[in-house]
Amino acid sequence: MKKQNHGAKKPSRPLSFVAEHKDTLLPFLLEQVKGKSRNNIKNLLSKRLVQVDGKTVTQFDHPLRPGQTVSIAPIRAKAEPSLPFDLLYEDDEIIVIDKPAGLLSIATEKEKNLTAYHMVTDYVKEKNKQNRIFIIHRLDKDTSGVLMFAKTEESKHSFQDNWEQIVKLRRYLAVVEGVPEKPSGTVRSFLLETSTHLVYSSSDGSGKEAITHYQILKSSEEYALLDVKIDTGRKNQIRVHMKDLGHPVAGDKKYGGSGSPMRRLGLHAIELKLIHPVTGQELCFTAKPPKEFKRMFPAQQK
């Protein structure tokens, strides 16, 4: 597993040598710097990494006097590519991130660049311009948490063709308005979508089946924190089913929410468990609960 490294290495100190007799720069450096060829030394000069008494020198035949100090600045390693959010996992086939709330998963007609897809694409291309990523699943713009992309077409097709067999668990945290009467339960319906992109449960069984399981973890007088598992990954499924349950997701005005106590949607993809499409290994990715969720339900509160 490759995790993103946010630590910085201490900068290397420059190498310094003192001339003991008259000389010229190139032969002096060849004698002092072991393991470097003539071309290596010339390359240091051309990159302006060599100084004599604190002044940058690029000429290989620059004369030296006894007592002068010759310094070679360290070659700075190219900065490792980074992401503006947490990288949870990466290998040759898949990459998994913790998407923040408010960021689109993929482009829309109105927004092309400020998306998780665009940012992760830039990240992998910094390593190799031939690298690509492919969309496997999505999270709503205002939903945070575990989001995965494929890095090869083979893996993309493997997920698309065998999603039910590969993905073993999709788990969310949901902050909802009010407290459900039952401590746990299942909401099952068939979903349709209007021309204005509003998803709803049909009354006649038409549409795509959606199954959502929930369990109350904590509650207060006005809100409840639910552990939610989905058997199907339909668009806006949890948001519609919480509305159907009579307890819309906090901050979700589109689906019946009346307020926004956290100033964001109360939905977070906390866990994704799957079988790796190439190695066959079972992997589990988790994204820490948002701090806003924790503030809503202090640790002592049940």
Rank of each mutant, 00 (worst) to 15 (best):
K34F: 13
G35F: 03
G35P: 06
K36R: 14
K36A: 10
K36V: 12
K36Q: 10
K36S: 05
S37D: 08
S37T: 13
S37W: 10
R38P: 05
R38I: 15
R38L: 08
R38A: 08
N39Q: 11
N39A: 14
N39T: 14
N39H: 11
I41K: 08
K42M: 05
N43K: 07
N43W: 06
L44N: 00
L44H: 03
L44I: 01
L45E: 04
S46G: 12
S46K: 15
K47G: 00
R48P: 00
R48F: 06
R48A: 07
L49V: 01
V50N: 03
V50I: 10
Q51A: 09
Q51E: 04
V52W: 13
V52S: 08
V52F: 04
V52E: 09
D53M: 09
D53R: 06
D53T: 10
D53K: 01
G54K: 09
G54Q: 12
K55A: 09
T56H: 07
T56Q: 00
V57D: 02
T58C: 06
T58G: 03
T58N: 07
Q59Y: 06
F60P: 03
D61G: 02
H62Q: 11
H62M: 00
H62Y: 13
H62S: 06
P63S: 14
R65Q: 07
P66Y: 13
P66D: 10
P66E: 11
P66R: 05
P66N: 12
P66I: 03
G67T: 15
Q68V: 13
T69A: 14
T69Q: 08
I72Y: 07
I72T: 02
A73S: 11
A73V: 00
A73G: 00
A73I: 02
P74Q: 01
I75D: 14
I75K: 12
I75E: 14
I75C: 09
I75L: 11
R76K: 14
A77W: 15
A77T: 15
A79W: 12
A79E: 03
E80P: 11
S82N: 12
S82H: 07
S82E: 15
P84K: 03
F85T: 02
F85D: 12
F85A: 15
F85E: 06
D86F: 07
L87C: 13
L87P: 14
L87Q: 01
L88S: 12
L88N: 01
L88Y: 01
L88T: 04
Y89V: 08
Y89I: 01
Y89W: 06
Y89M: 00
D91T: 12
D92F: 11
D92Q: 07
D92P: 00
E93F: 11
I94N: 04
I95Y: 04
I95T: 13
V96F: 09
V96H: 00
V96D: 02
I97Q: 04
I97V: 13
I97R: 02
I97H: 11
I97W: 02
D98N: 15
K99W: 13
K99T: 15
K99N: 13
P100C: 06
P100R: 03
A101K: 02
A101P: 05
A101N: 03
A101Y: 01
A101D: 01
G102V: 12
G102R: 02
L103W: 13
L103E: 12
L103R: 06
